[in-house]
Write a protein that binds this DNA or RNA. Structure first.
Length: 438
RNA sequence: GGGAGGUUUCCGGAGCGGUCAAACGGGUCAGACUGUAAAUCUGAUGGCUUAUGCCUUCACAGGUUCGAAUCCUGUACCUCCCA
């Protein structure tokens, strides 16, 4: 199976600018490909995973990937897929974000390979020093406004309902767009030309919402006398219910362990719907076609084993957080789902329960008869009042180190320390809190 | 400007002088079931050293009564109707 066929099988090809020839073109010799990333935060999130994984695949197949962080375009805001004008970020914020993102990319791309080492570029570097007049003369001149107006990304924002897809063009939220956003396309188009000049980049990949920007770049290159360039888009990663992948009630799922812990990250994937799991396996993991098909067979026969979700979580956590992150996530998972907590040290507990609230108490409390379970629950913040704590215990919903509390008379003593200083309390299925005794 | 009505525990909403910490529904929290799902079922749901006890709560402030969320007076806010 060729590289391109593999991409297709994985469902990573949505549209290309040359369906007939691109497979052979990619096989012919190593190509240079680029994809852009939005520096709206100092970390990437699951939404950006597709781009990273696609570039990674290209690199593994021998092609040279360029990750472009939009330091310049980020100052303007891509109107594609947005329904409203975007807030602009300051230069400093963007600089910080670009650095953070570049760091994360190292996990996906090899920047040191000899022949096809990945390149990280920031388009602010080649656009930041432009003057307005230069830009208008060199780039703007090559953009017919009527063509720009015909792009879906523009059309939907202007609320014109004469597009090919009338239903998607919600004319009732015609919020309009500023001249600044209108110009976004020109900047991204020029990126492609620049990368072709500097790195011989011939292919731009992006999400399907980037199609208009990609073709704009190809058009611009032609008008400016550059070679024929190519474009490829992947489908947007959506869930079977139509919503975006990588969002939880509490916000985006980030790749930065400080924003989304390895455990939470792992859990996100374990909880993916059955209907979406195998799609994600294909698109996002490095597993081979055979492996994935095996998993799918098991999944169909025994959905309750959640094989696809487990594999997905394991593969992606390993990729994003490394072996250590995966181990912590798995350990945390077994503990959060009932395994008894014992024989751990403070450091392990601290990692596993990093986002669990904790409270420090004096060691004295453990002496004598110990600390009454009801008081312990209140101290740990798991119950608002003693009455509430009492109810929880009576209903069998209180746990010390994942062992169910037998009754109201039970106390927390030295024997209950799960590590040097810490007792893990739990109320109900998922609510944990730590008591640290100093 | 004239007229009518409302304000209750997280929300909606009963309550019409004692048996009201206050029906019922929703939510929430526990438990069971389960695939770390959904649905369902069970229990709990003001606080207090769990008590046939005490304290705080029915817009706010006073009053009548042995006794008030319930009656009266005033204050604030809200809704509706007629101009």
């Amino acid at each position: 199976m060729s590289f391109y066929e593999d991409l297709q099988w994985r469902g990573l090809v949505h549209q290309t600018t040359n369906d007939a020839g691109i497979a052979a073109w990619l096989d012919e010799k190593p190509r240079t490909v680029y994809a852009g990333f939005d520096p709206t935060a100092d970390s990437l999130h699951v939404g950006s995973l597709m781009g990273l994984v696609v570039l990674r695949r290209f690199q593994q197949a021998g092609h040279k990937p360029i990750a472009v962080v939009g330091g310049a375009t980020g100052m303007i805001g891509d109107p594609s897929g947005k329904s409203a004008e975007r807030n602009l970020l300051s230069k400093d914020e963007l600089q910080k974000n670009v650095e953070g993102i570049g760091q994360q990319m190292r996990k996906f791309l090899d920047f040191d390979a000899n022949d096809n080492g990945a390149v990280l570029a920031n388009n602010f570097d080649w656009t930041g020093s432009w003057t307005y007049l230069e830009f208008l003369r060199d780039v703007g001149k090559n953009f017919p406004v009527n063509v720009m107006l015909a792009k879906d990304s523009v059309k939907s924002r202007l609320g014109r309902s004469d597009g090919p897809d009338k239903s998607a063009t919600a004319s009732d939220d015609a919020s309009g767009m500023s001249y600044t956003e209108f110009s976004y396309m020109l900047l991204q188009a020029y990126d492609f030309v620049h990368l072709n000049d500097e790195h011989g980049c011939e292919l731009q990949a992006g999400g399907s919402d980037q199609w208009g920007n990609i073709t704009a770049g190809i058009d611009l290159a032609r008008r400016m006398g550059r070679p024929q360039l190519f474009g490829l888009t992947w489908p947007l990663l959506t869930k079977s219910d139509g919503t975006k992948m990588g969002k939880t009630e509490s916000g985006a799922v980030w790749l930065d362990p400080l924003r989304t812990s390895p455990y939470q990250f792992f859990q996100y994937w374990v909880n993916v719907d059955d209907a979406d799991a195998s799609k994600c396996l294909r698109m996002l993991t490095d597993l081979s076609r055979e492996q994935i098909e095996d998993i799918e067979t098991v999944q169909t026969a025994h959905p309750e084993k959640r094989m696809a979700q487990k594999q997905l979580a394991e593969q992606l956590t390993l990729l994003v957080h490394g072996q250590d992150g995966l181990e912590v996530a798995e350990q945390a998972t077994s503990i959060f789902f009932g395994a008894e907590i014992a024989d751990l040290n403070d450091e392990q507990l601290g990692q596993i329960f990093s986002e669990v609230p904790s409270k420090e108490l004096s060691t004295d409390k453990l002496g004598g008869d110990g600390l009454a379970i009801v008081d312990a629950l209140v101290e740990a913040g798991l119950a608002k009042s003693k009455s509430e704590a009492r109810r929880t215990v009576q209903q069998g919903g209180a746990y010390i180190n994942n062992r169910r509390v037998a009754g109201l008379e039970q106390t927390v003593t030295n024997a209950d320390l799960a590590s040097e200083t810490t007792v893990v309390l739990r109320s109900g299925k998922k609510k944990y809190a730590l008591l640290r005794f100093r």
